[in-house]
Amino acid sequence: MFPAGFEHVEDQLWLWLVAMIRPGAAFFAAPIFGMASVPVQLRLVVSLAVGMAGLSAVPFQLPPDGVTSVAGVVLVLGEILAGLALGFAVQIGFSSAMLAGETIGNTMGLGFAQMMNPMSGASTPALAQFLSIIATFLFLSIGGHLSLATIIVDSYRALPVGSAMPAAASLRGLVMFGGDLFAAGLAIALPVGFALILVQIVMGMLSRSAPAMNLFAVGLPATLLAGLVLMAIASPSMGDGIIASINAGLGEARKIAAGR
């Protein structure tokens, strides 16, 4: 039997658990927060802080039969789906930088250079990892992490706990936005990628005019040098493209949080 003042401890613990579900799912799918190097304990604490701020803005009561009932399971599934949709929308905008890096790296001949990606734990091209690091700095510099927390808190108004299933239009918009990932990645890589294609055409013309020339000995260093110089020149425009893609991901997350 609990002492006086502790009779509602179990209800409070269940309330904290429900509060952590949606932010935890969003942070699991979102960039930076979902990195394997981020401690789980830190993620839980941040999820609880964001979730309690969201729950305090709307009235909420636990299901009469508890979270383990049918109504409670539906509630948890809705919270997980809403959180994953919010985080995945931001992740789509963030991943355009990695796609651009893979495109440029393959064109430069650096597709064989692999690095361990701390976000996914898989090997990715070195140039894609480089642009992913730049995207991380830009995401933090524009306050993307704070915007994501604000979006999660605002989502409790349009998608209250217990009715958090995103609308079919929201899920369809998220799927269609996934197609924009390829367009955004190619747009970021276009300044460097198009110039590298011209370099490849010139090297092909040289190989036809001078068949005795070792194309592999000359073409690879020339392509690498041209790629590095072009990336240095096009860095401002590529940074603007990455920021625009991240903002598009945050905008899509806002639409889902508003129930649209």
Rank of each mutant, 00 (worst) to 15 (best):
F112Y: 09
M119C: 11
P64T: 14
A82W: 13
M98G: 11
T107L: 14
I104C: 09
S95M: 11
L110E: 05
S120I: 02
V67H: 01
L99C: 09
P125F: 11
T103N: 10
S96F: 12
P64E: 15
T107M: 13
A82P: 13
P125G: 12
A113D: 06
N106Q: 14
T124N: 08
N106I: 09
S123M: 12
G83L: 12
P59H: 12
M52W: 03
G93A: 10
F88H: 15
L99Q: 10
G111F: 00
F112C: 07
G51A: 02
P118T: 04
E79Q: 15
L75Q: 05
S69D: 06
G66R: 01
A113C: 10
G101E: 03
G111K: 03
N117C: 03
G105V: 04
V58T: 11
M116S: 12
E79I: 04
N117Y: 15
G105D: 01
A53D: 06
F60C: 02
G66W: 00
L75I: 08
L99P: 05
S123Q: 12
I80P: 09
G101H: 05
G101W: 01
V67I: 15
T107Q: 14
V73L: 12
Q61F: 00
L84Q: 06
D65H: 07
T103F: 06
L86H: 02
M52A: 12
G51F: 08
L99Y: 08
V50P: 13
T103M: 13
A113R: 00
M98K: 03
P63Y: 07
G101C: 10
T107C: 07
L81G: 05
A97E: 09
T107E: 11
V50H: 01
G101Q: 09
A100H: 09
V58H: 13
G121F: 00
M116P: 00
A71H: 06
V73Q: 08
E79R: 15
G87C: 07
G51T: 03
S96Y: 07
G121T: 01
L110Y: 12
G105L: 07
G105W: 03
S56F: 00
P118Q: 07
V76L: 12
M108R: 01
G87K: 11
A57I: 12
V76Y: 04
V50G: 04
F94Y: 14
A113E: 05
A71M: 07
Q61E: 15
A97Y: 06
A82T: 10
N106Y: 09
M116V: 08
P125T: 04
P59G: 01
F60P: 00
V58R: 15
L84D: 05
G83W: 15
A126F: 01
A100K: 08
P125R: 02
G72L: 13
G109H: 04
E102Y: 01
